[in-house]
Design a protein around this nucleic acid. Structure first.
Length: 478
RNA sequence: UCCUGAAUAGCUCAGCUGGUUAGAGCAUCUGACUGUUAAUCAGAGGGUCCGGGGUUCAAGUCCCUGUUCAGGAGCCA
């Protein structure tokens, strides 16, 4: 039996202690005790919990025990027994301890005390070893798995949209250029501009800002598809909810109209939240406690209105409020509240407006639909009123926009006209336009920011703390 | 990118209207304690006060500047 089949700490913590001889490998979280006995909290990342290793010191070499320090990796063989102490049901009575890797306690930055999230961001290579990031990473895995499971169970096909794109017309933000041209003295053309004909692809290339256009192509063949991959935005955004590299889930469905799109999005989000509650309870309990301790230092009005798990249950119990942009503007105008940015029909809603609707007015997730055409992307289906498009944004408390989507314009003439109106270079989208000429059908889709979902489910406040190695402006360590 | 605030021990922070030798808690180390739960108790070590310039008899403290970080805004997922 190799490492592949070895049981983990999570398995043994759930097992019946019958003095069975077991061996475990992991990292020491803390050691305490007296001259006769030592208690070692051991973690292997399989659970937020540690297993208590008990070492009677007369059986172990003093110099060996000195090397058992916070952060060191050890192998322990011994008996799994019922614990004599409170706080755990089973413990490992050590018979043999082996040091796998020493860890100098004078230098190791993680201590058996609470660290600030800001400090942990500076040591992102070590922060997976903390309780908080262990919980986050397990939760992140569970959410990624649940996303694939949901779509698979609902007959969607997973499409791999390209990461490198040649189309610059997606309009979703600034892009990162991909090039093999030298940084200095790049070849120039006759007008003195960089000659991308000499570049790897023979044209300007960028990292994708969305897999949507490609997933539409697949949906117009396989009916229900989704992408789930990295996405890149070169915006100089310095906020708690933006990353330069993030993961996005983009389902795209043929024969779906806007209402179907909303039904799917709501069912999907609730499935994911339910999945977290059903499968990550220990980690959520920990994250909830963590959030409450952190918020003790905050002003009352800045604290969460509900503990994490109650908040998740609350979202499951409520149906999302669906209303049009026009209705939302009416509510905001009638609210009597003084906004920093005044509201009127036609303006894009600001964070403060969205927050008012979600957190003050409805107190639950909100789906806003049918936005003015002027403030939305070229591919959204135009309504008959000539003013609005069949867009939908889902707004979550504390997060803001978690999903943005729409029914797509399937009419060739209307789409073509809109592309020209918006000054988009139609030659780079000839393939997209062709799908509207060859068997076009109504279709719809949306994009869910994976890290924004993680923010909501974990209760964390900064998006840099729900991805292992965040990429933000001026931050590319690790 | 804009606005606001911050940078002092390994970490979290205090340090007043400038005034000898810069403090605390935690962590670390040493010792005590017969089973602890971020153990407890006692002691010890630990500092380029973010970088550069200036004002002053005197700067951690005041001014200018740069850098970094945080929060808010915009862009959006």
């Amino acid at each position: 039996m190799g490492a592949l089949n070895e049981k983990r700490i999570a398995d043994y913590l759930a097992a019946q202690p019958q003095e069975q001889i077991i061996s475990l490998k992991g990292w020491v979280r803390s050691k305490r005790g007296n001259k006769d006995i030592a208690f070692i909290a051991l973690s292997d990342g399989s659970t937020i919990k540690t297993i208590q290793v008990v070492a009677e010191l007369n059986q172990f070499d003093e110099n060996l025990m000195k090397r058992v320090t916070t952060g060191s990796s050890i192998l322990v063989k011994g008996k799994l027994v019922a614990s004599q102490g409170a706080g755990q049901t089973v413990e490992l009575l050590a018979e043999k301890i082996e040091i796998l890797g020493d860890c100098d306690p004078e230098k190791f930055p993680l201590q058996k005390k609470k660290h600030s999230l800001e400090f942990l961001r500076e040591i992102a290579h070590l922060r997976p070893r903390t309780n908080t990031f262990g919980a986050i990473l397990r939760l992140r895995h569970a959410m990624a798995f649940a996303i694939h499971k949901y779509f698979n169970d609902n007959n969607f096909y997973y499409i791999h949209a390209p990461i490198i794109t040649g189309s610059d017309a997606e309009g979703a933000g600034e892009m990162f250029r991909v090039t093999t041209l030298p940084a200095e003295n790049a070849p120039k053309n006759e007008s003195g501009e960089v000659d991308f004909d000499k570049d790897f692809f023979g044209k300007e290339a960028n990292l994708t800002v969305s897999g949507q256009l490609e997933s539409e192509l697949a949906a117009l063949a396989l009916s229900k598809v989704y992408t789930f991959g990295p996405t890149f935005r070169a915006e100089n955004s310095n906020t708690t909810r933006h990353l330069a590299e993030f993961w996005m889930i983009e389902p795209e469905m043929a024969f779906f109209e806007l209402e179907d799109n909303m039904d799917l999005a709501e069912d999907f989000l609730k499935y994911l939240i339910r999945y977290a509650l059903d499968n990550c309870r220990d980690d959520l309990d920990f994250l909830e406690k963590r959030q409450q301790e952190e918020e003790l230092q905050m002003k009352k009005e800045d604290r969460s209105s509900m503990p994490l798990i109650a908040k998740l249950e609350h979202v499951l119990a409520e149906s999302f409020e669906r209303l049009t942009y026009t209705e939302a503007v009416g509510i905001l105008e009638k609210s009597g509240k003084k906004f920093e940015f005044p509201v009127s029909w036609g303006v894009d809603l600001q964070s403060e407006h969205e927050r008012y609707l979600v957190e003050k007015h409805f107190k639950k997730p909100v789906i806003l639909t049918n936005y003015p055409m002027q403030i939305k992307a070229f591919y959204m289906k135009q309504n008959d009123d000539g003013k609005t498009v069949r867009a939908m944004d889902i707004l979550f408390p504390g997060i803001g926009e978690i999903i943005g989507g729409s029914q797509r314009e399937e009419d060739y003439e209307k789409l073509s006209k809109r592309i020209d109106e918006m000054g988009i270079h139609r030659d780079s989208l000839w393939w997209y336009l062709e799908t509207r000429q060859y068997g076009t059908v109504p279709h719809a889709g949306f994009g869910l920011g994976f890290e924004r979902l993680m923010l909501f489910v974990s209760g964390m406040g900064n998006i840099r703390d729900v991805i292992p190695f965040p990429r933000t402006p001026r931050n590319l360590e690790f």
